[in-house]
Write a protein that binds this DNA or RNA. Structure first.
Length: 493
RNA sequence: GGGUCCUUAGCUCAGCCGGUAGAGCAGCUCCCUUUUAAGGAGUUGGUCGUGCGUUCGAAUCGCACAGGACCCA
């Protein structure tokens, strides 16, 4: 028998049809005057003597999660958005609706009115005087003790996961809180939150394959954005000076525990500041988030404790490459044939057009990146792989840029912005050359962005933070799917 | 893209050197007026992910496919 028409559903459907024959099966005239958690918190101190002397009448409603019928009396627990409260039901008080209740199922949504009292074991409960079925649930919930563990069902039918798994609800509440705290943090610093286009004629601001769509009225190809960067910096040219955006980016790439095709990114741009200021800001932000949502500066993630109290390590790409590859000669880190030989030795594929900067990064990613457990700012990113970053004054092979790693993952990327329109035009030309050489992640030449820079962009620092990965870290979630309400999955067969 | 493992009742899981499919919870019938995974008695429920093969016989062995988990690139 298929899941769509199994016996349990058939039985519940018959119960629904019986309710329909009696009248309105899906009433919407019941109103609550209390939530479960409020009821419990407001009367935590009160014993039965107090409750008898000061009767508290409440109207509560929610989904029935437990049901224990004992002849002429029953207990049930209902869950609302705040938590659960127990109902005590007696045939003597409820009459006909008690008989009806015995036929209702775990999962049904009920409304109850009654007075508070404590049971023999001291649990604050509602002695129900009026009970109504508000919504019949046709599908059985997962096992009350084991809950729902099958990841496929948890992700595909998130509504079921949210009904039965408290921890899952807690993660998403925490996610919302984290995002709100980030906004508060930036708003306090006089940043302005803005919205920029998700559909773009050119997908710029990052190295990634875009999703392609089509605008019918204009008969033109458009792209879902891979980053908001170039639009936000136009706003810096416009004089907004401190802007940020928290919203979705789309990258047409594979799925993994750390990648979803659409993911949430914070990007902020801060005029009259440089990349060092961003490192300080990120350090402060992470600490304040950990204290607010993870219980302190010692954050436990997947069994390991991360101490955010100590200053975060700051180390260059070159130093990490040398640290993890003792055979590499520090004097030859910009020697292309030498680095190619090392890539071959390490089994790293490379393209003919790759220069020393790109090869360094390949070696870094293969040998060092995953070892960066404790919070670490990696600096000294080569200009070749940083087409939008300001070149370092002392060493233009490098840029004033960092990436931030924790638990072996990239969490943020920040740099002093390239505001020299002629340098930027030259970098775009290099990207176009790479694209023509077959690198489909290379950038386009964005003429309007160059025009904006030609009006003059003040010296600026810009930071991007992967919100999903940040939430994963702060909620101890092993997979990005655990922090996305509806993660991308292959279609159901 | 490569490797390892998983898919059996609504849920959580046994069964896997081939011999007609099992438990707990949920459901159904009955008993029970203070339960806490309530308890007691009885009982229903399965194209064992899909397809092809090996075999007298396949949940079990082989191959392919689909979906999922983890590791690697």
């Amino acid at each position: 028998m298929s899941e769509e028409e199994n016996k349990l559903i058939t039985e519940r459907r018959a119960k629904l049809h019986a309710v329909r024959r009696e009248g309105v099966a899906f009433p919407n005239d019941f109103r609550r005057n209390a939530l479960a958690a409020e009821v419990l918190a407001n009367h935590a101190e009160h014993d039965n003597a107090w409750l008898e002397a000061n009767p508290v009448r409440v109207q509560v409603g929610g989904r029935m999660m437990f049901k224990r019928v004992m002849g002429k009396a029953s207990f049930a627990k209902i869950a609302d958005r705040s938590g659960q409260v127990q109902l005590f039901l007696q045939e003597a008080t409820l009459g006909e609706s008690y008989e009806a209740f015995k036929g209702w199922d775990v999962g049904d949504i009920l409304g109850a009115e009654g007075v508070l009292f404590r049971t023999r074991t001291g649990e604050l409960s509602v002695r129900v005087e009026t009970l109504r079925l508000l919504t019949k649930s046709l599908r059985p919930l997962p096992d009350k003790w084991h809950g729902l563990t099958d990841t496929d069902t948890r992700y595909r039918q998130r509504y079921v996961d949210l009904i039965v798994n408290d921890e899952s609800r807690a993660v998403f509440r925490k996610r919302t809180r984290i995002v709100r705290l980030v906004r508060d943090f930036l708003d306090t610093m006089d940043f302005t939150e803005v919205e920029t286009p998700m559909m773009q004629p050119l997908a710029g601001g990052a190295a990634a394959r875009p999703f392609v769509t089509h605008h019918n009225a204009l008969d033109m190809q458009m792209f879902l954005r891979i980053a908001p960067e170039l639009y936000l910096k136009r706003l810096i040219v416009g004089g907004l000076e401190r802007v940020y955006e928290i919203n979705r980016n789309f990258r047409n790439e594979g799925l993994s525990t750390q990648h979803n095709p659409e993911f949430t990114m914070l990007e902020l741009y801060w005029a009259f500041r440089d990349f060092r200021d961003l490192m300080d800001l990120l350090e402060r932000l992470l600490r304040s988030l950990a204290e607010a949502v993870a219980g302190g500066l010692q954050v436990s993630y997947q069994g390991r404790v991360y101490d955010l109290a100590v200053p975060f390590r700051r180390v260059s790409v070159a130093d990490l490459v040398l640290e993890h590859n003792p055979g590499i000669d520090a004097a030859r880190l910009r020697d292309v044939p030498y680095l190619r030989a090392w890539c071959e030795k390490l089994g790293i594929p490379f393209k003919p057009g790759d220069g020393a900067g790109k090869l360094q990064i390949e070696i870094f990613e293969k040998t060092a990146e995953h070892t960066l457990q404790d919070p670490t700012f990696v600096t000294g990113y080569p200009a070749e792989v940083s087409p939008l970053s300001r070149a370092n004054d002392a060493d233009p092979f490098l840029t004033d840029r960092f990436e931030f790693f924790i638990a072996g993952r990239e969490l943020a990327n920040g740099f002093s912005e390239l505001n020299d329109p002629e340098d930027q035009a030259e970098r775009f030309h290099q990207q176009v050359a790479r694209k023509e050489a077959g690198d489909d992640e290379a950038m386009h030449y964005d003429a309007d962005y160059i025009r904006a820079l030609e009006y003059g962009m003040p010296p600026t620092a810009g930071l991007g933070i992967g919100i999903d990965r940040l939430v994963m870290f702060l909620t101890d979630a092993p997979s990005i799917r655990d922090v996305l309400l509806f993660p991308h999955l292959r279609p159901e067969s």
